[in-house]
Every structure is written in structure tokens, then in C-alpha cells.
Design a protein around this nucleic acid. Structure first.
Lengths: 347, 347
DNA sequence: CTGAAAGCGCTAACAC
DNA sequence: GTGTTAGCGCTTTCAG
């Protein structure tokens, strides 16, 4: 291994060594620039040899395009988000963008972190979280950075959003559970005030109510395993307990499921049917085998990327929100439906 | 005439409006600069009013300090990594650093992504992965970016590493399982060639062998749930199956556990004891209650941050590798150790 | 097709 | 304390 070059080599070095002007050397790196083929080849060859690569910082300053996309994520403990983050980042970097990650741990200094992010002039900010303060996102749009909400209905009027059809999915799940014999439905909510919570709640409760059933509702506090456990305890210990439970997210459903089985000794789905939303990897594990609604992650990422790429149109079709359909995953925690396929029940 | 860049306000705007020079305005943002208190206050007040913030790109170009830390992560599907990523990113941003995330999905273009990352002149690159190609990391050190391996023993001679004491942890687990009555130990490996695989394997097998036991070894292929499942199938279906199973990672152990229970109908830990390594959140869930070794994540992150902050010393104490002790978590998938001390049981 | 010159927004020596 | 003067590494007119 050669001794590490003390100084990063610049376009000037190349120009000097090649006896050209910096302008010419620079052109070699722009596919659409007018430059002689031979010249470009010479430049690129030497560049490779010397390990030169244009400095993104300097370039960004001039072009105004930094290639940086800020990704704000609040809850990496909910396995849904790492999954989304992996897909999103992979897609971004394949498209030549760099992800700057900002995590909003509770008690952390999100605002400072966002301001820090903004100082790098990101071209876009993707909010991968149900519950980032409006203030935090306002800072972004104030700085002129277009906002895109992933898995959340934007609260800012000029922001975009890509979400799953939460209401439709939850309704389909309700239909499925009712068809499986559910008579005393229960609902465990997620973080109050989030659109995912609200829409899933409305979908489930709405459908049950329309079918003449009354839903017992229990706040879960947040989209966490422990939140699901606690809510399940409160819901199951009284008399008259539900025979079907829908949780606003898989991670909560798993908490509820484990609690029902291990603390209350209930048989699932015989005594109690349980379902969640998201289809995180653990939902499919044999130990859980959780019925749920799969979010169309790939499609959501694809739409996100399309918006990020088409940045110029910022503000044009703003206030737009895309709702993609989810997919019902009937697994072992809900009672199977006798004959009718769910498709006919679903709206 | 450049096409109107953005309406982002600059230091010049402030200077003009305040009737000062740009240099003076700039000084207001540097705590150690010589500047009149009144002047600084005036500047900061207007800055806040106008929503001005120094451009990190321009600043970085001059100071050479970008405040960017590249984080390379290969496997966000293993819950250990999101956990580490969340902690690490939070720590970095609290210290004023920005994380640039690069994901190395299989089949993806890591090399291109790394080159892209390098063009932003990161001050440090943290490799959060057991299995990133040496080539990828070599690119970084060739570019003069100090490398830090998290949860992996570095293969580059000039890189640093922070790891858990894998061998010690695995040995402790072996001792615990032997004390619990294990007589026919089995080992399910992780990704071949990784240091985590090797060290955990050596720790477990070494201790068992020293105790006079022969270990059946089964490759798991990768640190995945499915890998654990498959390996468990191969290991459990023959005659003479193990009565104790150590997996190189929790995520594999959970796959093995579910397979043992649901496909082979085995009672855990009565028929088969199972243990993993990492202590991912799911390990503690009642449905699994997996015995394992907890990695000292907080301490590892702390050490990482210390190194990143002290960047100037790059190369000085290079080749350094820090081994932090893990913590044995005795849970329900291993047989409890009788009250007698280990030595008396063995005779 | 190529080169010279003028910056991008900011910092860092220097003077005053 | 404050202003002046050079740039950082690159892109981008505008000549030639």
C-alpha cells in the first residue's frame, strides 16, 4: 500500500500535469460539455490514475445542487422504519443522491440536528416518521427545502406525502376478522395525533360500527412493543374481554399477542384474534404468525424517488398526497374465513 | 449571470443590511473570535430574524472540516444494526456531526456509493457491518479518510475497531450451558470470514472442547433469521441431535428457536437449549425469551465518538482495537444452573 | 474546442 | 475590534 497522499488532489493538479486549463479538465467530467474525445480520455485516464474525484462541496456551491437528501427518522426501534430506511437509502444512492440521516430520539435535540442538516443545503427532506413535531418540519420548509412525508399525511399545506391506504387496509382487516367470527372487537391505538393512528382507527372502527359492532378502544401511547403489552393488559383483564384485537401497528400487535398468550394464557386465535398493520419481518415468524396488512414499501419508495428526482417542480403540484393500497396478509392469529374471498368484501 | 440561485440569504446580505464587513459578521458566529459584544449581538439578532445560518458547504471548503461522518451499513435487516445506528447517529449529531448513510444492500452498488460519499470529504467513516468488502474500505483509506470498524475486527492495518469481547462472551455462554447440563453442543455459524463469526465460534467451541465435549458445527450462511432456520433443520433432523445450540447471532438463534419448536415440536430448553449473541430487542420478548450475550452498545458508541472527535490523532494510535466485555443474559431458552458451583457439577 | 476570468459563501491572514 | 484581501475547488460565461 502506497503512503497515504497528504493532500487531496484537485482539478488544478490535473490541469498542471496535463498542461491544460482547469476549465478543460472540468469539462471532461460533464457528459454534455463540448470537449474533444481525446482530451476527455486523457483527463479521465489521469484522474483514475491519481484517484481524483471532483469535490462535491465545491461543485454544490456553484450548481446549487448538493445531491444531499435529508432523511429524518424518529423511531428506528419500530422495525418498520429500518426496513423503509434501507430501501429508501438504497434507492437514493442508486440515483446518485446521498442520504443525510437525522434521528429524533426522544429527549434528543432534533431541532439542532435539523438546523445542522439544513446548513448542508439538502435538496429534499424525507420525513420517515409518524410523529415529528410540526415545528421541526416547519424549519425545513422555511428554509425552502421541499418536504416529503413517508408513511404520514403531511400537516404542512405545501408538503407531499406518500402513505399506505391505512383506512382501507384497516377496514379490510375488520371485514376479515368479522367474517372469522369476531363479535367483540377491540382496538389498540398508536401514538395519538398521528395520521397512521387516526386513519387505521377510523378504518377499523368505522367498518365494525357499520356492521353493528361496538369497539372497545384502548390507547397504546406509542408504536412500541411495550405499548402493545400494556394496552393489552388493560383490555384483557376485565370481564367481557374482546374476542378480536386490532392494533395500530405490528410492533404493538406483537406485544399484545405475547401478553395474551403468556400472561393471560389465551389461545390465539381461538379465544382471541389479533391483527396488526405494516407487515414487519417479525410478523411472519412462526412464533408470531401475525395477520396484518403489508405496506407497499417498494412502491412507496419508488414514488418518493420520483419526487426527489423531479425536484424542479417543487411547489408546483405541492400539497399532493399519494395513497397506495396495502395487502391483507391472512396468517395464523386470525380465524380463517369460511369461503368468501376478502376481495369481495373489501371496498 | 447565473440563473438566480436561491433566495437563501447569505453573510453578505447581513453585512450589507448591518453596514458591516462580511468578516465582522462572520466573526459573530465564532465564539473564540475577537469581536465587540454589542456587534455580535446585533449580528445574531438579525441572523435569527432573517433565519440566516452559515453555509456548511462553504465553511467546510476552507476549514477542511466538513462535520460529515460516513456510516456504512450492510445489513439493516439484522435488528442489531438499526439499534446501533440509532445510538450512533444520535451521539454523532449531539456532538455536531452529520451522518451520511451508505447502505450496502446485496447486489447494490456499494463502490459507487462510497465514492459518492468520499466526494463530500467525510472526516471519518464508520463501518457498521461485519461483511463489507475489503475493497470498499480500502477505497476510504486510500482517500485518506480514517476508518473505524464497529462490531468488527478491522482487516486494514491502519484502522481502528470497537468490538464486543465475542470470544469471552461465547465462552461464558458455553460455561452457562454446560452447567445447565448440555452434553451434546451444537453451533450454528454466521457469515463465514467475519470476525464476529470466528471469535464467537472459537469462544464457544474452545470452551466446550476444553470441557471434553465435541461440538457439532453447522454453517448458517449469513446472519439472518432464515439462515438460522435452515441450519437448525439440518442439525435437528438427524439422529443424535444436539441438546444445546449456540448461534452466532440472535437473529439466527430466533430462527433456530422457532424451527425447533414449531417444526420439530421440541421443548426449549428441556429438549434443547438455545442461545444467541447480541441481545436484540426481540430476544427479550416473552415469545422468545432468548438467553444471549448483550453487546455493550452504549459503551461502544461512546468509544466511537471519542475517536471521531479526536480525529487529529489519525494514524497515531492506529491499528488499535478495543474489546469491551458483554453481559450474559440468562433467560428462558437455557436451563437454569443449579445452585452448586460449576466445578462441583463437573466431577 | 479551449482558456481566461469571475465568482459560489465563507474563513483566515494580515493591516488599520 | 474591524475592514481588506486572498483564496478553498470547482463551474460557467465569454472570448478566441
Amino acid at each position: 500500500m502506497p503512503p497515504r497522499p497528504s493532500q487531496r488532489i484537485t482539478i488544478k493538479d490535473l490541469a498542471r500535469e496535463l498542461g491544460m486549463s482547469v476549465a478543460t479538465v472540468a469539462r471532461a467530467f460533464h457528459p454534455e460539455a463540448d470537449i474533444a474525445v481525446a482530451t476527455r480520455e486523457a483527463v479521465l485516464r489521469l484522474a483514475r490514475e491519481r484517484g481524483y474525484q471532483p469535490d462535491a462541496l465545491a461543485r454544490s456551491m456553484i450548481t446549487g445542487r448538493t445531491g444531499i437528501v435529508g432523511v429524518l427518522v424518529a423511531d428506528l426501534h419500530n422495525p418498520f422504519y429500518p426496513q423503509a430506511l434501507a430501501l429508501l437509502t438504497a434507492a437514493l444512492q442508486a440515483a446518485g443522491f446521498n442520504t443525510m440521516l437525522v434521528v429524533a430520539e426522544p429527549g434528543g435535540t432534533v431541532d439542532a440536528a435539523i438546523r445542522l442538516l439544513l446548513s448542508y443545503r439538502p435538496e429534499y427532506a424525507v420525513v420517515l416518521a409518524t410523529d415529528l413535531t410540526t415545528e421541526a418540519t416547519a424549519t425545513c420548509s422555511a428554509a425552502g427545502v421541499p418536504l416529503l412525508f413517508f408513511n404520514r399525511v403531511p400537516d404542512a399545506p405545501d408538503a407531499r406525502g406518500v402513505v399506505c391506504d391505512n383506512q382501507g387496509g384497516a377496514a379490510a382487516l375488520a371485514a376479515h376478522m368479522i367474517a372469522g367470527g369476531m363479535r367483540r372487537p377491540g382496538f389498540i391505538g398508536g401514538l395519538e395525533g398521528t395520521s397512521t393512528h387516526r386513519e387505521r382507527r377510523d378504518g377499523f372502527i368505522g367498518h365494525c360500527t357499520a356492521g353493528g359492532l361496538t369497539v372497545r378502544e384502548e390507547p397504546g401511547g406509542a408504536f412500541t412493543y411495550a405499548g402493545g403489552q400494556d394496552a393489552a393488559r388493560r383490555l384483557l383483564r376485565g370481564p367481557d374481554r374482546p374476542d378480536g384485537l386490532f392494533c395500530a401497528g405490528d410492533i404493538m400487535a406483537l406485544g399484545a399477542l405475547d401478553t395474551a398468550r403468556h400472561e393471560f394464557g389465551l389461545r390465539v386465535p381461538e379465544d382471541l384474534a389479533i391483527a396488526g398493520f405494516d407487515d414487519i419481518p417479525m410478523a411472519a415468524w412462526p412464533a408470531h404468525d401475525l395477520s396484518t396488512v403489508r405496506q407497499p414499501l417498494e412502491a412507496m419508495v419508488e414514488k418518493t424517488l420520483a419526487w426527489v428526482r423531479g425536484r424542479p417542480a417543487a411547489g408546483a403540484e405541492a400539497g399532493c398526497i399519494l395513497r397506495l393500497p396495502g395487502q391483507l396478509m391472512e396468517r395464523g392469529t386470525t380465524r380463517p374465513v369460511p369461503s368468501l374471498p376478502f376481495k369481495e368484501i373489501c371496498r
